[in-house]
Simulated scan of single mutants.
Amino acid sequence: MTDQPIYSHTDLKNEIYRLQGLEREKGLELKQRFSSPGAIFSSIFSLFSGNDHADAKDGGIFKQDFLGVLSRFALPFTLNRTLFKNSNFIVKALVGLVSQKASHFISEDSVEGVWDKAKGLFGKVTHLFDKSDKKTKPEVTSFRKIKKD
Rank of each mutant, 00 (worst) to 15 (best):
R72M: 07
T82Q: 11
V91C: 08
N51S: 12
Y17K: 15
S43C: 03
T82C: 08
K101A: 06
E112L: 00
D58E: 13
K147P: 06
R81G: 10
V140A: 12
D109F: 00
S107N: 05
D109W: 00
L83F: 06
G60W: 00
H104N: 08
F62Y: 07
K145C: 11
L28A: 10
K131V: 10
K137C: 07
I146P: 05
A118H: 07
G113V: 00
I106L: 02
L47A: 15
K134V: 15
R72Q: 05
L97Y: 01
P76V: 03
K92M: 07
G59L: 07
F45E: 14
D55G: 02
I90N: 03
E23C: 09
F143Q: 11
N80V: 02
V140C: 08
D116L: 05
T82K: 13
G38V: 08
L22D: 12
P5F: 08
Y17W: 05
K131Y: 04
V98G: 03
P138A: 15
S142H: 08
K131R: 11
S8F: 03
R144C: 06
L67Q: 05
T10L: 09
S46A: 09
F77Y: 09
K148G: 03
R81N: 11
E25M: 14
N86D: 15
V69H: 06
F34Y: 10
S35Y: 03
Q100C: 12
S110C: 01
L94K: 07
S42H: 12
A93C: 07
D11Q: 09
N14P: 01
L75V: 02
S36I: 02
K135M: 08
F77T: 07
K117H: 05
L12M: 08
K137L: 12
F105Y: 01
G38K: 14
N14K: 10
E139K: 13
T136C: 12
F84L: 10
Y7D: 15
A102Y: 00
R144W: 04
V114K: 04
K13R: 12
D55K: 12
L94R: 06
P5K: 15
K117Q: 05
Q100K: 10
R33C: 07
F84T: 03
V111G: 02
F84M: 06
N86E: 14
G27D: 14
T136M: 13
P76H: 04
A93N: 15
S132N: 09
S42W: 10
S35P: 01
K57E: 03
D52I: 11
G96Y: 04
D58M: 09
Q20C: 09
D116C: 04
Q64I: 01
S46E: 11
S142D: 15
F45A: 15
E25W: 05
S43K: 12
R144M: 13
T78D: 04
F129C: 03
K101Q: 15
R24A: 11
M1R: 05
T126G: 06
V69G: 02
L70G: 09
T2H: 11
L75R: 14
K137M: 11
